[in-house]
Each structure stands twice: as C-alpha cells, then as structure tokens.
Write a protein that binds this DNA or RNA. Structure first.
Lengths: 210, 210
DNA sequence: AACTATCGCAACGACATGTTGCGTTAAGGA
DNA sequence: TCCTTAACGCAACATGTCGTTGCGATAGTT
C-alpha cells in the first residue's frame, strides 16, 4: 500500500527478557503492595486496582505479568517468608512451646502472617491457592513436630497421642482467637500449653475406644 | 389529555401485605435455596442468580424482598436453627462432652451447620453479618458452658481454668479439621476430650505467670 | 367479580475482572 | 553513545455479577 515502509529484516539486537531497572521495580512494588492489600483487606475485598495504585503502577502492567487475580495472589504468597524458628530449644517442653507460640503469634500479626492466614480460609478460590497456602502453613509446623516428638522420646508425652492433633489443640484456638480479635497473651498461651502438655502426659486417664 | 381515563377515587379494598399462597411459597423457596447455596458454594461463590434458579423464582423477586445480598444471607442465617442440645446430661463429664461433640459434628456437616460456618469466617462482609453469625455460634456453646461449670463445682476441672478457652481447645481443632477435610471421628474427639479434661483437672502442674 | 399486592420479564447502570491496540519509555547489546 | 525492542502507560473494550426500575401479567383478598 502507499505509505507503507518496509524495513529490512535484520537480526534482533536483544533477545532475553529485561530483569533490571524498571521491570524489577514494578515487580517488587506490585508484590509488596499485593501482600499489604491482602493483609489489610482480606481475600474477599482484595482488588487489583488498589494494588496497582499502591504500587504506583498501571493496572495493565500487573495483568501482563500475572494473568489472573489468583496468580498474583499466588506470587504474593510465595513472597511471604514462612515462619521460621531460629531459637535454640532448651529441652524444657513448656518453655520451648511458649517461646515458639509467642513468636508465631507475633508473626501472625504481621503483614506476612496475615497474608498467609487470609488464604488459609476455606472457600478461597481457586483450590490450588488454598493448597499452596496450606503447604506453606504446614511448613511452619516443622519445629512444633520436632518438639512434640522429642518430648515423646523423653517420655513427657504419651506415645499414643497424635502429635498433629495435640499441636492443633494449641494452635487452632490461637488462630480462632486472633481472627475474632480475642486476647491472645502470655496467660492464654500458658494455659493452652499447660492443659495440652499435662493432658497428654503418660499415665493420664484415657477413654477406651468402644 | 386525549385517551387518558380518569378513574373515580375509591377506597382500596385491601391494605395489608399478602402472606399466604404464592408469596409464602416464594419466601420459603428462596430462603431454603439460599441456605443450600451457601452450604454448597460458600460465601465467596454465593450467587443470587443461582438461588433464584434453585428456588424456581425470578431474580427480581428476591431483590424486592431482600435489597442486598447481605440481607438475604442474614435472613437465610436466621432460618438456620442453631445447634440445640436435647440430650440429658449423665453427669459423666467425658461422656457428656463426647455426646455433645458428636452431635455438634453431625450438625456442622449438615447444610444448616455449613451455612453458619460459612459466615463465621472473617472477611465476610458486612461486619454485621459476621456479628450475627458469631452470636448464633456462641448460642450453640451454652450446653458446653454448663458442662464445664458444673464440672468445676464437682472439682473435676480446676477453678482457675478459663472455661471458654478450654472449650475452644476442643472445638477449634474440630472446626479446623472439618474445614480442611481431615478426619473427625470418635477417636479424634475422644483424644481431644481426654487431653483437655485431664489437663484441666485440679492438681496438674501450672506454669507460674512471670 | 373487583381490586391490587406481588410476581415475571426486560432493560438499564455501576463496578470489578480481564483483554487488546497503540504510542511512549527505557533496558541493554552494538 | 546509538539503536532495537521489551516492557510500560493509556484508553477502549468485553464480560459477569450486583442491584434498580418500568410495565404488563398473575393471583390473593375482600
């Protein structure tokens, strides 16, 4: 057609993706904003528009990198550093459990922890996102497992007790109370741990299965 | 104007709302469908259109009665009969707790229970709806309170134990496991109750507050 | 049978998600 | 430094759900 300029075919100068400078800033800002938005608004109220605004980035740029809201949430979730225990164990079960739970509560109150907890709720879609959140959540349980198992070896916890269930007896009330805005202080944690540890000790009465 | 018929003003024959027949059917069908939809799809995926279809009713009819989705959910929630304990207590704490928890688990697995549990999740909007759900949920706890308090009087539970917290140690793991699809059978319930009751008994070691 | 509350249907506006075309900016190899 | 083009910003669009409104049809109630 008239006016159509045909450029000579030449080998492209660059090939790879651009990872530095602007692109990097956009990705980092978007993911950080996504984590904050998720922690602040929760899963249902989470809006891409708001993430874009907080990141100082156009909405389109987000969609070009993460095709759906779920993908963005997934990426944001992966940014969340899982709860890691760095404290050395003292060998005192109740003391170690208290330490662990106090640090976990602090983490759960942070943006990182809120983000994970938002996605641990059921009826989050798609299901893969829930699965990912659960996987990350379960990873946080590793030090708890270790504590209970070594306590079993020392004979402080009855061998017949399901370790996962025992940990749930401490953590499930904590998460429920945090969600509801009920107090979760040292006294509460101490009570949870005392009841669980005493109740799971060997020699306590157990109801026979019928 | 031409063609405009002016009717003689006459006193209206009826005044009150119509509660029988069609209207009644529409209301009942809509609320029943809403409960089912909430139990099936959960809060996030809940759609008015789907409720209307299942109820065999036009979408508009639902909106005319309940102006917002939240109002419909609220009405549906009020339809849910709260968990009521009809069983006589035997005075055996563990046995009564097991009875109670088994019935509660059965109820939580019903459409009624799922409906309530869907709305007990945080980040459900508006907040009033969450508050209503929590109120109804707390009402279900009445028999549990009674059990723990009378056990305290008999000296089976230490007086210093927070009854609400102790109940949470049994119920929170149950709800978490139900949400995640983990097993909640008699063995699990028995363990929860054994650990909680033994651990909360008088004479067990308590960590001193620092 | 007459009156009218309530229904069904259709059309509309508002809002969030997700897509696409195009012009502009800047990363990075020459 | 200069050129190519990956990635951006902007605007416009398509879709789906919520929620509203007008109007004619249906069916309680008197």
């Amino acid at each position: 057609m008239a006016g159509t300029k045909k450029k000579l075919a030449r080998a492209p100068v660059t090939r790879g993706v651009r990872v530095g400078g602007r692109s990097k800033r956009v990705v980092e800002a978007a993911l950080r904003a996504a984590v904050n938005e998720l922690a602040r608004s929760g899963y249902t109220a989470f809006q891409i528009e708001e993430v874009a605004r907080e990141a100082g980035v156009n909405r389109t740029s987000i969609y070009r990198r993460w095709p759906t809201k779920a993908k963005l949430l997934e990426a944001a979730l992966r940014e969340v550093s899982p709860f890691h225990n760095t404290q050395a164990m003292t060998g005192n079960l109740r003391r170690d459990l208290l330490d662990l739970s106090q640090r976990l509560v602090r983490w759960m109150r942070s943006a990182q922890g809120k983000t994970l907890m938002s996605l641990l709720t059921r009826d989050v879609r798609p299901p893969e996102l829930v699965r990912l959140a659960r996987t990350l959540g379960d990873e946080s349980l590793a030090p708890w497992w270790a504590l209970v198992e070594s306590a079993k070896l020392r004979g402080e916890i009855a061998r017949g007790i399901d370790a996962r269930l025992l940990i749930q007896m401490i953590l499930a009330p904590v998460t429920v109370r945090l969600e509801r805005g009920e107090r979760v202080n040292t006294k509460v944690l101490t009570t949870l741990i005392d009841v669980a540890v005493s109740g799971a000790a060997p020699g306590q009465r157990r109801t026979r299965a019928r």
